[in-house]
Amino acid sequence: MRVDEIMIDVENLSKKFGDVTAVDEVTFHVNEGEVFGFLGPNGAGKTTTVRMLSCLISKTSGDARIAGYDINNTDDSLKIRKLIGLVPDNVGLYEELSAYKNLDFYGKLYECNKIQREENIEHFLRMLGLWEKRDVAAGAFSKGMKQKIAIARALIHEPEILFLDEPTVNLDPESSKMVRDFIMELKKEKKTIFLNTHNLDEAQKICDKIGILNTKLMATGTPEELEGSVWGNKTVIQLEKVNDMILDELNKLSLKKIIYDNNKLTIDVVNPKKENPIIVAAIVRAGGQVQYVTELSPTLEDAYLKFVR
C-alpha cells in the first residue's frame, strides 16, 4: 500500500472537554476510495472526531492528517476544509432562502466559479430529485429533502473526502436507500467517505471498513472481520431427540463447547468443513436423527454489542 493513498490518517487522537474525555487515543486510517463507517452509541465521540478532522475544533493530543495535511496547522486547515465536504448532524440550511440560493452561497464560499456552481447545483439537485423545487424556500422542505440538500451542499465543490454525520437518521427507507446508493456512486468516483452512523445494517451494506467507537476505538476491520471476531464458528444441529448416548458420543470428539436445548445442539467448531461431517457421523452412530444442520454466523450487531458493552 502506498502511503499517499491514505486519505485520513489518525494517530492517538484525543479530545477532552474540561474533565470529560470525548475521544480517547484513537488510531485508524482510511484509504482513498474507501467507505469508512464509524459506529458507536450516543456520546461515543463520533461527532467530536469528525469535527476535529474537519478542523472545526482542536485536538487535545495526538495527530491526524487529511490527504497529507496536518489538522493542527492553521495554513493546512484551510486547505483541508477546501478538500473535504461535511454533512453535519444538523442540516443547518438557511430556511428563508431557496434550495438553489443555499447551494450557490456555499459554492461561492468554496471558491467555485459561476459555471461550476451552475453545473454542480443542477447536477446534484437533479440527482436527488429536487431540481423542480430549486426555488422553494428550504424551510418548506421535509426533513429528508433538507438532508439531501445538505448532502448536495457538501459536494458542491467536488471534494475528495466526504464526512457524513448520521446522514440517514431522518430519512424514510426509500430515501435512505437513495442516500446509500448515492454514497456508492461517489465511491465509484474514488471519493473517500467517512460515515458516522448508528445503523448497523447500513454500515454493513456500504462500508469497506468499520471502526467501533466508544470514546476509545474498540475495534476496526472489515464487516466480516468484525463479525468473525465475536466468536468462532458455530454449527447448529437440529435433532429429532437429543439423548445421553448422542452426547456421550459427541464428548468423545473433544469438541470445545456444546450447548443444547429443545433438541437443538449448538457446537463451537474450529474448522466446520472438516468437523461437521465427523460430528454428524458421530450423531448418526449414536442413533440420532439429524433433521438439519446450519451454521450460526455472528452479525455485525453481535460484534457491535460485544465491543460497546
Partner: peptide
C-alpha cells in the same frame, strides 16, 4: 438554525 457549523466548515 445550526447553520453556523456548515458555514464554519467552509474554507
Amino acid at each position: 438554525e445550526k447553520s453556523i457549523e456548515p458555514l464554519l466548515a467552509t474554507p
